[in-house]
């Protein structure tokens, strides 16, 4: 059996990559992808813990399913927002949209 720590290492690295991508990219769609990666890392964590700590109970996997639901919703709305921004400002380049500026 694979040690739990290995799974956690993989999920942490995937999480960090997602964070890095989200912070780094200037393309809104790529940021969206990075966020999906972060959510996947979380799912991996949930399933890993579920497998090793509560093997007789599917709650870890059920949580992961809910995360997926929310991720799907988030992707759809996120994409819609990006398209609206793009239509309006002519670019998906998020660094040009600075409406949050003080």
């Amino acid at each position: 059996m694979i040690p739990l720590f290995y799974v956690l290492v993989v999920s942490t690295l995937l999480f960090a990559l997602g964070v890095y991508g989200a912070l780094l990219s200037t393309n809104a769609i790529r940021i969206l992808m990075s966020i999906e990666m972060i959510l996947n890392a979380v799912n991996l964590n949930l399933v890993g813990f579920g497998r090793y700590i509560t093997p007789s109970d599917p709650r870890g996997q059920i949580f992961a399913i809910f995360v997926m639901t929310v991720a799907a919703a988030e992707a759809a709305v996120g994409l819609a927002i990006i398209l609206v921004i793009a239509r309006r400002y002519g670019a998906a380049a998020i660094d040009r949209v600075r409406m949050l500026k003080g």
Partner: peptide
């Protein structure tokens, strides 16, 4: 992880 890196 490799694919994730390439995504970025």
């Amino acid at each position: 992880l490799g694919a994730a890196f390439k995504v970025i």
